[in-house]
Design a protein around this nucleic acid. Structure first.
Length: 152
DNA sequence: GCCAACGTTGGC
DNA sequence: GCCAACGTTGGC
């Protein structure tokens, strides 16, 4: 069982939207490293910290879990989608995505500033300078620490 | 295979 | 809106 942090801009897709839909494909990822995490490493039942980025304030908004292993991202075939990739074919998909399931919205957002201020979390990838990857591995310790912070 | 130019991410 | 950091593209 692994732990992950997944970033999303709440204007595009938020924890509230996931709650409403219950499950959703995590589509639109167009970075190979992030794709590889989804395609190669994510397993059903893995826990996900749902991170809101490019907003005020950025931070961890809640928890999801992986509901199904990766499948070809349908948006790569959709000419009307902003994620359309003309190089992808159904025989040879390029992009993959997992399905995630809503678990909980935190009683309050745990902000990036708060993550930075927490000694236990100092090694988190999301705090590293220049770390832009939208999907990052996390540890059980980090996961539990953030869940505790959210209830303080 | 190098690397300059360009595009994107995302905090501030 | 700025810009640092990083990834991708494409000419050579």
């Amino acid at each position: 069982m692994q732990y992950w942090l997944m970033k999303s801009e709440p204007d595009v897709f938020s924890i509230d939207e996931l709650k409403k839909r219950e499950t959703s494909l995590w589509d639109g990822v167009r970075n190979y490293q992030a794709r590889n995490f989804m395609r190669n490493d994510m397993k059903v039942g893995d826990s996900v910290l749902f991170y809101h980025s490019s907003c005020e304030p950025p931070g961890v908004a809640g928890v999801a879990k992986v509901a199904s292993v990766a499948e070809p991202d349908p948006s790569q075939f959709d000419k009307k989608s902003e994620y359309y990739d003309p190089k992808a074919t159904k025989d040879k998909p390029i992009w993959y995505c997992v399905r995630v399931k809503f678990v909980e919205k935190f009683p309050r957002l745990v902000s990036l500033a708060e993550l930075r201020a927490t000694k236990e979390l100092k090694d988190m990838l999301v705090l590293k300078k220049g770390q832009r990857l939208s999907i990052q591995p996390a540890t059980a310790k980090e996961f539990e620490c953030i869940r505790r912070l959210a209830r303080r």
